[in-house]
C-alpha cells in the first residue's frame, strides 16, 4: 500500500463516515478546529479507520498527539510499516 493509497482511503473514511466534502480534506486541516470533530467523533473515526485498513489502533498512545489530517496519514503509514516489519520478522522466524 502506497502513501497515496493511505491518503485516499483515509479521505474516504472522512467522506463516508462524516460526509465531509473532499475539498476540505487537506493534510494541514486541524481535525478539531477546522473539521469540527470532538473526542466522541474521534472514537467513531478510529473504528472506521480500523475497518478500512484492517488494523488495531484503538489503544495506541500516538492517537493522543494527532491534530491534523496529515498526522493521521503519517500515523497510518507508520502503523502499516510497523505491521510489515513485524510480518517479515515472523516469516524469518
Amino acid at each position: 500500500m502506497t502513501e497515496q493509497d493511505i491518503i485516499e482511503l483515509t479521505n474516504q473514511v472522512f467522506e463516508e463516515s462524516f460526509e465531509i466534502e473532499k475539498e476540505l480534506l487537506k493534510p494541514e486541516m486541524n481535525i478539531f478546529q477546522d473539521l469540527g470533530l470532538d473526542s466522541l467523533d474521534v472514537v467513531d473515526l478510529v473504528v472506521a479507520l480500523q475497518e478500512k485498513f484492517g488494523i488495531k489502533i484503538r489503544n495506541d498512545e500516538r492517537l493522543k498527539t494527532i491534530r491534523s489530517l496529515g498526522d493521521i496519514y503519517n500515523f497510518i503509514l507508520a502503523l502499516k510499516e510497523e505491521n510489515l516489519s513485524l510480518n517479515a520478522l515472523h516469516k524469518q522466524e
Binding site: S17, F18, E19, G36, L37, D44
Partner: peptide, 11 residues
C-alpha cells in the same frame, strides 16, 4: 443522520 452530521446541521 450521524452525530457529526446532525451537530453540524444544527450549528
Amino acid at each position: 443522520f450521524s452525530p457529526y452530521k446532525l451537530k453540524n446541521r444544527i450549528r
